[in-house]
Design a protein around this nucleic acid. Structure first.
Lengths: 151, 151
DNA sequence: GCACTCCTGACCAAGAAGGTCAGGAAAGTC
DNA sequence: GACTTTCCTGACCTTCTTGGTCAGGAGTGC
């Protein structure tokens, strides 16, 4: 139930690309802008490329750019690209598990967990992230002071 | 962003305890009822005990029982007991991370993620789970056919 | 005293997390 | 064509986590 460094890095780098005004941005600049180890970041960018989220060109004037407009890329896509499916239980999707006896309804709970994660991650696009103008539902969740205290 | 086997097992065992009518239930019975490796389960139950969620007695007529009424134990407590804090990013709580540049608002997104997880896990009690009568908000999330398809 | 059941620590294999290193392969520049 | 630049790729590494198993100790009840 945690967010890996990789996912965090991936979203941050993608946000940086989303904000880029012109031309390809090279890995080094992304790494510096977001303080991410360069070589690790390059592996991450490669994964994003393989998932069709990012494009790249080598050589002088080379670098990375988004394969799609920033308002068509969701945080969920990026997280899935580097972490795999969201909210799997024991490495299998919750809808595929059979619960017996008194835990019969646990399946619905895990499904709800996944749905609630999706309702945040699939709604926020890179454009939202860069502009700071998040969807209302997400803003509301983050607005409660209670959401900011640890437990 | 996944649910570990341990957390799944813990909640299932706790549900079984919540449904118990009388006296302590022994580990073996829990293991059989929910098809969990016994020795692994005993470690999990010990953790739950250390977190004050469960009590136990040894010897003949011994076993485990809930330390609190089933409607006062939430799924969130159980998950935290065995998995640690929910929705930490890079092993630190989202409110403690500093984001720079174009990922400034990512913090709000992770906070929203945590809040949405809490809105499910902290609302469902073991009593809800056993009766199948989940809170309305959770039911609603799980009711959408969309929530049941993989992505 | 004995059976029963929990309690605890040690151990273990496999995989993931979070990187680093070395070199190859395109693209642009002179 | 040589050279620089930047991405691309696989190998490797250390530490931690996951999902267990094993062996024995310590209360409890009869």
């Amino acid at each position: 139930m945690r967010v890996s460094a990789k996912a965090d890095y991936a979203v941050r780098a993608a946000a940086e690309l989303a904000a880029a005004e012109e031309g390809p941005i090279k890995g080094e600049r992304l790494a510096e802008a977001q303080d991410i180890p360069l070589q690790f970041l390059e592996h991450i960018l490669l994964e994003l490329k393989h998932h069709g989220i990012v494009r790249a060109r080598r050589g002088a004037k080379g670098g990375y750019w988004l394969a799609k407009p920033a308002d068509e890329v969701t945080v969920a896509e990026i997280v899935r690209a580097v972490e795999g499916p969201i909210a799997h239980v024991q490495s299998t999707p919750p809808e595929a598990i059979e619960y017996r006896g008194n835990s019969k309804h646990l399946q619905e709970v895990w499904i709800a967990v996944r749905a609630s994660l999706r309702s945040v991650l699939e709604e926020v696009t890179l454009a939202d992230l860069v502009s700071g103008d998040l969807p209302e539902s997400v803003k509301d969740l983050a607005a409660s002071p209670d959401a900011w205290v640890a437990r």
